[in-house]
Structure formats: structure tokens, C-alpha cells
Design a binder for these strands. Structure first.
Lengths: 368, 368
DNA sequence: ATGAAAGCGCTAACAA
DNA sequence: TTGTTAGCGCTTTCAT
């Protein structure tokens, strides 16, 4: 009971050649715009192609040339607006150079990421842009390189890999964010992330370098502002909505409740919003909040959330541009691009008592 | 200056065959698991493949068989969480049957949609799932069918097209939403959408059937609740954030300000939130709000927004399932699936004075 | 059960 | 300038 579709044989270059009464090769030259063809013949071929509604078969072309004009993109979470926007950047830039984009979602899962990569390779993508789900596993990435396909890492680094990277300078960004808080007088901070606590015990050693960098910056700035180490807390593991709520409610209900939270991304920030409501806390009066990523809702809610805006779209265009550049010149030196994030001050930080804040404020302005 | 990569020749079936000392055909049979091979030979071939790290070339296979194991998906706006979730539904379901997904974004632009479709067809997708950007243009869709590739319409219909459709019952959903409002005593309503006002003058004749259906339901319910026709307004054209703000500020600042707004999607609802803040209006005290789509932020903000939740993920799985079904049986009857939406009552609707509301309330409960 | 050979649609040497 | 021919890697008759 397998009545498959007949998969209509479509018009091939052979049909066009016959119609135009030339050889396949000549038709190919006219159609492909390479080699040399007389004007008369070209017109004849193009006319025939038009008449027959000829559509080149990209697969056959790829098989013959080894190039597909396609870039593979693998992101961690397609539902995250951050990646949505970055992907648009990639697509827009790729289109400029005539590249198509093949998109896949790893769901932050290594096995899925590996499978997606294998599929893309087997489908003949010319190169890959990947936001790796883990900084520690690079075998599959090495293989891409071994197969002669260029690779660009997006938003997340894999230390030691000899590839181009396009990421955000998360350390400076986090420093900035933290300074916004300490400058407003906050001395009890908490960084909240979905990442799991690193086994090594070193908080910056999380699986995503993007998060690790942010934590570094946070810790640095807290130290610089002489925040007591035990008051520069980090809350790991806010993976699902439920887990985030449990964690946050415990945190906000506890005795050592922080006066300010730095959310690792806009999804976390939303959960902070939700949890503070559940705990009967008001932002910013009872709790100040800063988050990475200028998600659309952050400016519409009350209070509008102060954010560290990331150059998300630019991240995408830069990644695509880098890949295309390397496609054209395999020998160009490897580059690690760190784009700067920029703070957008809104209304979710409350200035709390204390002195010396103005000095820190100046310090902040140096960085902006 | 075109130093392209050497594109390493990878291990082919020929290499495996040689290593296993059998013919190409036999190797292919063993590897592909079809035809007949003796156990001994199969082991030899599989062993060699393993040893050489053989990866089948999907392109070559597609060229030879005409099937690619790939489904093409074209959505209107990948950044919209609605489509993000639907795409995940599609991917998950497709993966169950071993299909890969090729994703493209039309940006709600017809030309882009057509181009994406051509690319996918030329790359040999087995079938297509499309959320068409316009109900009126179907030439490119007809062509998919003509090429013998099945097509499933997602979320939006193209009236008259003989294809499977998986959509939401938007008319009932909108009726429900409107009844929520009228039952609470609202008599001055406004439906706000990004769609442009139809040239025909018929408000339900917008380019997207999903929106048209919702408008039908809205109008029906308003009429049934004896809302004065001029108070069942429709506000078209809230395309960009800026346009939405301009429109909404004018609407909310005007003399005939509605007491309740029905937002066509969560993006619009967010703009309503923003605009009401700008106008100094409080939700729900000064303005009630209902929206389609249970976006994550709607339950986290204050007040939490009453929404009509759509079965978004299910929409995706159903679409994938339908396509795969047709791939296996081209002759199965065409189906139009209408999934039901369900209201989630939160805190953005205020009960306003007046009588007779209880009667309408009962009416509502019939539908829930 | 296995092998030889043709072919999917296109490109790219090489000849003419 | 144009045609001939040989692949790209795989599947699939048709023989053996």
C-alpha cells in the first residue's frame, strides 16, 4: 500500500539543448553564464529554457561542482528570539552573496547537534555556522574541518579550536551590567542562569563560554566594587520554567534575599518577573533587575527593564560574512570577533542608600 | 585571488567496496539494507565501512532515487515564537519518520516565498509545508503540485487549492474571545491587526485567511451580543512597532476610545501594552485586553493577559504527519484540519457596568 | 547471491 | 565558439 507520487520528471538541460538544437555543453554554458557562447546561440538557448520553463537541478549541479551555494546553520534554540534574530542576520547576509541557508535546531543537545551536522555535511553544505551546545566536545567540529568545510562559531567559543568565532564581548558586558547595579548602591547581588553548575567548582567553567564570560565579568565587577564575595551569588540550573520558578521563589523568599538580580538572558528575566510577582515583590522597589538581551517585551512591561543589548543581528551578518570570506580564501588568518554589547537604562534598577556610588558611576561611564 | 578549499574527497561506496573486495552494487546493497546479501559479505562490507568511516552522500542518493528524506518548511516570520514553536512540532514529528527539515523564512513577502520555494524544489525536497504570505497568489503553489511534490498549508489557507490544510479554527476562537469581552459588559470594542485593510472593503477579506477568520468570528460575536456595529471597530495596518504605536496612541487617545481591545496576535498585544503605558492608561482598569496566542510574556506581566491559546505545537506535528501520510499515499483524500483554540482567563479583562451580561456569560460557557 | 553497466542532471576538460 | 566525453556517488535493472 505504498502509492508514492510519480515525481514528475522535470525539464532538464538535455531537453533545453535539444529544443535549442545545440549540445548539452553549450546549453549549460549559456544557462550557467560561463565559458563562451555566441549571442545568437545564447538567445536561442535562453529562449528555449524560458519556453520549456526549465529549472536547473541544484542537486546535480552540486554533485558536479562540489559546491552547493548553501550554508548550514545550527543553533541551540530556534524559539529563542536571540537566535531568531541572529539567523535573520545570517540569512540576509548570505542572500547578498547568493547563498541559501539550511537551518537546524540542536535543542542544546549534543547528540542532536552532531546528527544535524552529519545531515548537513551529507547534503553538501559549503560551510557551517554553529552555536555549539558545549564547549568541551569538539570531535564533530573537527570533522567538519577535516572534510574541508569551513566552520564559524556563533555566540559561543570552543577554546582551542582553530576556527573563526563571532561572539559578544560578554565579559565587558557583564562588568557593565554589574556596575550599573553596584553604582546604584546594591551590595547583595545574584546572577541567575539556566546553565548547570560546573562540576569543577569554578563558576566560570560552565558549558557555554558565553555564559562563562558573563560570569567572569560579573565576578570581576563585584570584586572591584568591593561587594562581599558571599553577596555576589550565582544561581545555576534555571532550565525549565518550573525549575526557574522553584529556584527563584526560594531565592527571593530566603533570608539572604538579594537586592538585585542579573539575569543571564531574557528568558530568565521573564521568570524573575514572574517569580517576583509570585513572591509579592515589586520591581524595582523590592528587587532590581538587569538582563542581557533586549527582548521586545522588556521595553513594554512596567517597569521597563534595564538591559544589556547585544548586537544580535550584527552577530549573524558578521558570522555569515566571515564564513563567505573563508569560502573564498581558505588561507586567510583565523579571526575571533568580539562585538560589544551596549546598556539600555530603563526603570528596573532602584538606587539604594549608601555612599561612594557616584565614584563608581563615573567608572561606569568610562565603559559606555 | 580565489583560494578555495580543497573539499577533501571523502570515502565513497567505491572505497568501501574495494576494501571489502566486493562490487559497488553489493556494497550498496549491504549498506542500504536492500536486495540480498549473504551474512558473511554483509559483515565484511559493514566492517569496512566502519573502518573507513564511510558516510553516505545524501546528494548522490537523492539523485539516484529521486527522494531526499527532506521536508521543506516556509514560514512567514521565524522570529515569531508562534512559528518557532510550530516548526519545532514539525521537526519533532518529521524526525520520527526519519525526515530532515529544511527551513526558510518568507518575511511575509511573496517574492521571497517564491524564491525559497524554488530553491527547495531544486534541492529536491520530498514535500513542502508552507504558511503562505497571501491567500490570493497560488501559482507557485500550483507548481509544487505540478512537480509532483505534496504540499501542506500551515495556519493559513488558500481557498480553492486542492491541498491538505492544517489550521486553527480562528472563527470560533475569535467568537470566544469577543464573548469574553461582551460578557464582561464591554460595548466598545476594537480588533487590532498588522494586516492591511482589504481593498475590497470587506474586512474579512484580508490577505491572511487566519486573520480573516478571526475577524469574521469577532464581527459575528459582536453582532450576536448586539454591540453597535460602529463600536465593533477594526484597526488595520499595525505592521511595524512604530506604525502600531502611532495607530494605537491615536486610537487610545481619541474620543471614541474602545473599552476593550482584541489583539490579533501576541506582537500586537505587546504594542497595546506599550501604547497604553504611553497614554497613561491602566490595564485592565482603563482598557481591557485579550489576545490570540499564549506567548510566554503574557503570563508573566502585570496584569497577566487573558489569551486564546492556540495549539501551536500540535499544528506543527499535524502538518508534518499529514505531509508524511501523503508522501506514502498520494491518493488519500484531501483533508482540512481545524484545531481548536482554548481560552486562558487571566487578569486583563475588567468587568464593566451594565446588565444582561450574565446571559451572555452562559452563552460563552457553551463554547468553552 | 553477486557483478556489470546504465543512468540521475549537470559540469568541465579536452578536442575540434 | 561548439561538441564530445568522462565523471560526481549512488541505485537499480539485468545478467550471471
Amino acid at each position: 500500500m505504498d502509492k508514492r507520487l510519480p515525481a514528475q520528471r522535470s525539464v532538464t538541460i538535455t531537453d533545453v539543448a535539444r529544443a535549442a538544437q545545440v549540445s548539452k555543453a553549450t546549453a549549460a554554458r549559456a544557462l550557467g553564464g560561463y565559458g563562451t557562447v555566441s549571442a545568437a546561440v545564447r538567445d536561442r538557448v535562453l529562449g528555449a529554457a524560458q519556453r520549456l520553463d526549465y529549472r536547473p537541478n541544484a542537486l546535480a549541479r552540486t554533485m558536479a561542482t562540489g559546491r552547493s551555494g548553501t550554508i548550514g546553520v545550527i543553533v541551540g534554540d530556534i524559539e529563542n528570539p536571540f537566535f531568531g534574530l541572529a539567523v535573520r542576520g545570517i540569512s540576509d547576509r548570505a542572500k547578498q552573496d547568493g547563498f541559501d541557508v539550511l537551518l537546524a535546531n540542536s535543542a542544546e543537545d549534543l547528540a542532536t547537534e552532531q546528527a544535524a551536522m552529519a545531515v548537513m555535511l551529507s547534503k553538501g553544505v559549503d560551510g557551517l555556522i554553529v552555536a555549539p551546545s558545549q564547549k568541551a566536545e569538539r570531535r564533530h567540529l573537527d570533522e567538519v574541518l577535516a572534510r574541508g568545510r569551513p566552520l564559524v562559531l556563533l555566540d559561543r567559543d570552543v577554546p582551542g579550536m582553530p576556527v573563526d568565532v563571532v561572539e559578544v564581548d560578554g565579559r565587558s558586558a557583564a562588568r557593565l551590567a554589574t556596575e550599573l547595579l553596584t553604582a546604584a548602591g546594591h551590595r547583595r547581588l545574584c546572577y541567575v542562569t539556566a546553565s548547570l553548575a560546573p562540576e569543577s567548582g569554578d563558576p566560570t567553567d560552565v558549558v557555554l563560554t558565553s555564559v562563562g564570560n558573563r560570569i567572569s565579568g560579573y565576578l570581576e565587577a563585584a570584586k572591584a566594587a568591593a561587594v562581599e564575595p558571599c553577596h555576589a551569588a550565582i544561581c545555576f540550573g534555571a532550565v525549565t520554567t518550573q525549575e526557574a520558578q522553584d529556584l527563584l521563589v526560594a531565592l527571593l523568599g530566603g533570608p539572604q534575599r538579594p537586592s538585585a538580580i542579573l539575569a543571564s538572558d531574557s528568558k530568565i528575566a521573564l521568570e524573575v518577573f514572574r517569580a517576583s510577582k509570585a513572591c509579592g515583590l515589586t520591581i524595582p522597589d523590592d528587587l532590581s533587575l538587569v538582563t542581557f538581551d533586549d527582548a521586545d517585551w522588556t521595553s513594554a512591561v512596567d517597569p521597563a527593564v534595564t538591559v544589556i543589548a547585544q548586537p544580535t543581528y550584527a552577530l549573524g551578518t558578521a558570522a555569515a560574512e566571515t564564513l563567505i570570506g573563508r569560502l573564498n580564501d581558505a588561507d586567510r588568518p583565523i579571526r575571533r570577533q568580539q562585538l560589544k554589547a551596549s546598556p539600555i537604562c530603563r526603570a528596573s534598577i532602584k538606587r539604594v542608600g549608601g555612599l561612594g556610588s557616584s565614584a563608581v558611576l563615573e567608572q561606569v561611564s568610562d565603559h559606555v
